[in-house]
Amino acid sequence: MPHDHQNDEPLSSSGHPFRADDDTKLSYWQVMEIAVRELLIEKGHISASQVHEQINRMDARSPANGATIVARAWTDPQFKAALLTNAGQTSRDMGFDIGPMQLIVVENTNSVHNVVVCTLCSCYPRNLLGLPPDWYKSRAYRSRTVVEPRKVLSEFGVEIAPDVQVRVHDSTADMRYLVLPAKPAEANGVSETLLANWVTRDSMIGVGLPRAPV
């Protein structure tokens, strides 16, 4: 039973244990961040509200941004060509504030399946898709995806046919990557606006496929 807890800790109204308070000491880098932030504010370089605004701006970024780009690429061949040539500028022209991010879009076809990883750290197109999922930052994903991508993909429920080449993109330096998934045949005739609902975050990392919205 999911709610059959083994101890006598009080449970919240949802039936789960209360989360423990974070009564732990600040780490070296947490102290450093607070010190630098307070100094910058004291010296008048930035304000607390600007810091908070920037955090909100990052929190507001979500895979929905990427999904609208994919949906347009599925319906507008000229836009798609521009996206595959210069993804950063094309995203900016569409109105996305992606900062200085350098972006490459790679296209899934009948003969190629692309998947993105960062073996050295956790580079991810945050300025477009928001924060990466936790598994993307795990050692298991980062190390295994370059060694056995087909096995990793199968654990995500994606089976790649033997006649399709898998291309693993390791974001080792200055570029960030977005996969342009293949448009499912069942999505033919769907409008650009509604097509965006077919595009999942995972399909833009390459570990998932687009699917009809539930």
Partner: peptide, 19 residues
């Protein structure tokens, strides 16, 4: 090239940015 005989699928590829 990268993993030799232990490669999962020899013709699959890895692309990386290198200076």
């Amino acid at each position: 090239e990268v993993w030799g005989d232990g490669a999962e699928t020899p013709d699959d590829v890895i692309e990386a940015e290198i200076y």
